[in-house]
Structure formats: C-alpha cells, structure tokens
Design a protein around this nucleic acid. Sequence first.
DNA 1: AATGAATGAGGATTCATTCAT
DNA 2: CATGAATGAATCCTCATTCAT
Lengths: 194, 194, 194, 194
Amino acid sequence: MAEQQATREAVLDAALAVFTEHTYDGTAMSVLATRAGVAVGTIYRHFPSKEALGNAVYRQWKARLAADLFADHGADGAGGAGLPVREEFGLVWRGMLRFAAEFPDAFAFLELQQHAGYLDAESVALTERIDRAGAELIIRGQRSGEIRAGDPEVLVALAYGAFVGLAAARRGGGATGAGDLALAEEAVWDLLSR
Amino acid sequence: MAEQQATREAVLDAALAVFTEHTYDGTAMSVLATRAGVAVGTIYRHFPSKEALGNAVYRQWKARLAADLFADHGADGAGGAGLPVREEFGLVWRGMLRFAAEFPDAFAFLELQQHAGYLDAESVALTERIDRAGAELIIRGQRSGEIRAGDPEVLVALAYGAFVGLAAARRGGGATGAGDLALAEEAVWDLLSR
Amino acid sequence: MAEQQATREAVLDAALAVFTEHTYDGTAMSVLATRAGVAVGTIYRHFPSKEALGNAVYRQWKARLAADLFADHGADGAGGAGLPVREEFGLVWRGMLRFAAEFPDAFAFLELQQHAGYLDAESVALTERIDRAGAELIIRGQRSGEIRAGDPEVLVALAYGAFVGLAAARRGGGATGAGDLALAEEAVWDLLSR
Amino acid sequence: MAEQQATREAVLDAALAVFTEHTYDGTAMSVLATRAGVAVGTIYRHFPSKEALGNAVYRQWKARLAADLFADHGADGAGGAGLPVREEFGLVWRGMLRFAAEFPDAFAFLELQQHAGYLDAESVALTERIDRAGAELIIRGQRSGEIRAGDPEVLVALAYGAFVGLAAARRGGGATGAGDLALAEEAVWDLLSR
DNA sequence: AATGAATGAGGATTCATTCAT
DNA sequence: CATGAATGAATCCTCATTCAT
C-alpha cells in the first residue's frame, strides 16, 4: 500500500518532467511510463486517463505553489495581517523565488505552458482562487497607500508576469547572480508602489 | 500564382488560429485543413511538413512583432537614435500594445506557448535577435542614467514578462479599460527606471 | 467515388465474414482490415467506429432479409393480399430458404449470435418491424381459420426458431437433401396450422 | 476445502451471468471477478485460463441440461423404454421448459450464443452426444409410426429450434402465459408427428 | 495544382495473466 | 490461499504523410 503510493508518485514525478519537456499533448504515455520506470498499464491503475493525470499534476503543483506563497504568513486571502504590505510582498516574492528554484520544472510546467485543452473545472477553480489571493494583497496595499492606484488585476498581471519572465530567463540559463534577485524584487516593488 | 499565395496565406492564418487554440501538438493537420478551407494534400504543396509549417507560422509572426517594435524608429538594434530612452520605451511599449491588440492570437501563440519541440535553428536565432534588441535599449538607458543599474537581461525579462502577463490578462477578458494601459506603461517604466 | 463505394463494400463484406466466424467482440479490427484487403485506417474513413460498423452490417442484412421475405408478394405488413395464407407462408418460407442458402454467413450472423451489446436504437427498431410482419401473417391465418389459435408471438417464435434450427443444422453440414426441405416446410406448416 | 468449492461455484455462477449478458469475448476477467466477489488472481487458482473457465461453464450447464432432459426416464440415449414416444416427448419438452424456466441465463448462454471460438474437443463431444440422444428419440417415434418420416437430424433441428425460439421470446418478455406453453407443446408435437 | 482516400506507424487504453505480499 | 498491483501485448482509434485521380 505504501508501495502503491510510491508508484503513484513516481508517475506524477515522471509526468511533470516529461510534460514540462515535451508538453502535455507532445508526450506519449509510453514515454511517460518508461521515464517513471513502470509499465503503461500501471499508470492506468492510478489515473483513469491521460487527461486525469494531467489535471493531477497541474493541481498538485498549483496547490503547492499557493501554499508556498500564501500559507506561511497571515495573508492567506481572507486575512490582512499586521505586516506592512511591502514586507508581505517580500515574503510572497521570495516564496515564488524559493518555489521556482526548488521546483523549476513545476514552475515551468505551470506558468510557461498552455493548459486550456485539458484542465477540468476543479483545476480552473484552483487557479482562480490563487489569482484572487494576489489581488487581495494588492488591494490591502492600496488601502494602506503603499501600492499605487489602479485595477488590482492589472497590477497582479504585471507583477506576476514579471516574475514569470524572470523565472523563464533563469530557466534559460541567465540571471543567475544573487544581485539579480535583489534587483528584481526592488524593481517589481517599484512597479507596484510608486 | 497569386492564387497560390492566397492559399499559402489561408493555411498560415488557419494554422495560427488552431495552433493558438489547441497548441501545435494538439492540432491535427486535417483540422487545420478544414479551417483553412483546403484539402490536406494542398497544405503539403506549400509546406513540406507540419514542423515546417509550425516554423513558418512562428517566424512570420515573430518577425512581424520585431518589426512593429523596433523598425519604425531609429532603434533597430544596431542603432541608438537621439530619442530619450523614456520616449523610445514608450514607442516600443505601444508597439507591443498595438500588436497584441491587432493580432491577439499571434501574440498568444508566440508568448503563451512552448515551442521548443519543433522550432528549428533559424527560428531560434530570430528570437534571440529580438531579445538582444531589447537588451540594447536597456543598456542605452543605463548609459544615459534613465534606467536603473543591473543585468540588462534581467530587466528585459521582467519588463517583457510584465507585458506578457498583461496581454494574457486581457486575453482572459480583464484589464480592458484605457486607463489600465496608461497605468501599465507607467508602472513598467517605474520598474525599469527607479 | 465508385472506388470509395467499392472499398466500403469490401469492408462490409469482410466484416460479415469475420464477425460471423469470430463474433463481433471476438474480432480485431486489424483482422477485419486484412480480410478486406485495406489498411485499418481506411475502415475508419468509412465507419466512425467498430460499433457503427457492426450496426451497419447488421442493418444491411436484416433489411435485405426482410425484403426477401416480405417484399415480393403483397403481404408486407400492412396488407393482406388475396393469397391463401398457406401459400403466403410458402413464399416466406422459401424466401428464408433462398436467403439462408445464398447468404449463409449473413443468416448465421443475424440469427445465431447475440448482438445486444452493440446494437443501437435504429437497429433494434428494424428488428422489431420484421417480427411484427411475421406476427401479422399469423394473425391473417388465424382469421381465415388456416392457422391454429394462440398468441401469434408464440407461433412466430416457434416457426422462426424451427427455421433457424434447420439453417444451423445445414450450416453444420447436415440436412442437405432436397427432400429435407420439403419435409421441413410441411412440418412447420403443421406446427402452425393444425 | 468446502471453502474452495464455494469459491469455485461463485466464480462459475458469476461467469454464467456475465457471459450471458456480455458474451464470452465481451467479458473482462476483472468484471467477472467483481461479480463473483473475489479477486482476479483467485479465479486463476481455480481455472487455468479464461478459456478453461468458459469451457467449464459450458460443460457444467450442457451436462445439466442433458441430465434434465433424458436422465430421469429410461431414454438416456442407448435405451428405449416402454413409454409411447408422445409421452416421452412430453417429458423431454417439459424438461426443457423446466430447465429454461429455472435457469434462464444458462439456457440463453448455451443456445443463444456462438461458442465455436473457445470450446475444446471435450465440450464439442458432449454437445454431439446430446444431439444424438434427440435423434434417437425421433427414430424410435418413426419406428413406432408416431413421428413422421424424414431425416431425424432435420426433425430434431426443427423441434429444438422451435423450443429455442420460444425460450428466446420468453426471455425477451413475451409468451408468458400458461396457455402458451400447452399450445407450444402441442404445436411442436404436430410438427413432429403428423 | 488541388483533392481527399488510403496508408500504417504510433497513440491512448484495455485486459488476460503473473506474482509479491 | 487470496489478493490486487503490476505487466506488456493487443485493442481501438488517430493522424502525418502519400499518391492516384
């Protein structure tokens, strides 16, 4: 039974790796099976279809990303902790950084690919929940005067897009210095604040 | 012959539309043919393979995007016109905006999907040329003191990433107000300029 | 285009042969394709699925059987021609005989196998229409006093079942004499009449 | 050990049920296992293969049918009791009726499906033995003048076919009245005797 | 030059059978 | 002994590509 869990995880890990490298549609189940070190049939004992597996991978990592960004300080959406928004932003930013450094494939899979073709309603809902949490942080900053006025959705899109761009560059082999990261955090905060 | 050109363009247009909607790997040639209003065999008179067609679509639009951003003022990479960098940035930014508004599918195809599986060397080289042009604009701004210090590659990644994030949000139905665009330009310039 | 029709018919013919020999569920599409002298993919240009092909084969032959039994004399269900029912029965019986002799595979496929797993509503409706026509012949005979009283459905089941049993025996290599056939017709008429 | 017998029988029962509903080839071992309330692997402790199981089911019921029809009066093939053939026919007929009423799935499985694909030599021999017993009854009737002249094989095929047709109709929901059964026995005897 | 039927390798999924627990 | 996870060949079906018309 622990055995079974291990197999399931091997499949999820392999799926992340090959989907990231070759795209969901560009990946054959047989390739995935080989990468996971199991037989094709085994995958289907754990996931009813390729589509279900794709959603499982997506959700696993999107949820983990959300947890890494918002869970460990008070600002998990409902909230509004006592922290200055600048510091809260720093926590979120460095959470993204940590996630993207520790799980570069997961970040690339989540944010550098198009999933519209196979995501189900639950996966979409999860994504929207996360976007909302970002917008709420912005709104708190606007209330406190720390963040500039304007549609919070636009500011989230710009700031998160900037981070995705940075992560993509790092994935491509650039922006590897430690100074780059401090620069980036400052620059994006300036995008948001003044 | 003009006939032939028209067919070729119908195929390229249909390819952009279906690749954008379903991904390169997620698209069947027969679907593409139907969308283009031609027979499958006809596509193969104009493009030797699906891969070649994918590259043709990619290059067509990436080149057009480059032209829209850089060509019409002096700053096409080598150069360095006399314009203040803030103004030059404004030209580039509004060029991106115009392109993304006029050809939303093309922008989504180019920037929201992963092409690594089928792009050939020439397509990759084209992309790199454009990135370089962006970096050069940053460098000019740093020399003139208008743009903050730091790895130009990082700043390009952040700024272009921010734009992609904005375009994705607009594609999803948000950030539609005119004020949003002015806000975005200002914010991203603040990201760059300090 | 006539070419296409020929391919379609080759597939239908091969399907009848292999379904009859190995059963619908016992037949692989690749076997069918080989038998038809075409590639697997070709079958799918003519029939959207194995199930659709199964229904097409079933309907083709069930309709033909119905036509052979009822069409060529006045008694096609609505009717009630002037013929004595004994003679009409003879026409139907010899129609069955002719059909089963000319298309033994088709008869075996239709009547010696279980189709419930894949027949669609239209195929089922066709079958019911034919059963009804048989019952109506019985009813006419009962009205004229030529056929014994009792549930017409029961009498049809017995008489048609007897024919199927005979056809199965002939398929197995028995009951090949001409006298056998005259005997059988007489015996079944006696089942119905007195 | 009694435990084991019980499992074996649960498997045989489940096999009959699912084979009858979905056909031998249309049934997956896993479905069968679920229906039997055992694990797939367990089936293989009792039967070496699906084919062996199919033959076991077939033989179990074909033998039981033979016993019900012929065993309990003197006419078990070799014999020739003193009974008038009309009465002996009645015993056989009502034996069939009892069997088909008590074990409708078994009768449908045996007589409404095609087994050629997996029956082994022993199963085929058993079937032939039964057919022979039927023919011998006919022959005795012909000797005594009670049954009409003609190839006994043909008469068996007709009479047994009639019964199968009746049973199929009853399975389909028709011919449920008690009068129907008396009618049927009379009619089939008239088929044989005249 | 355009068509679209044909091809068959390749893709997703199933299933009889095995075997470690 | 029973279990059911694992296996991988075999199944149904798809799709890039070819070619006769």
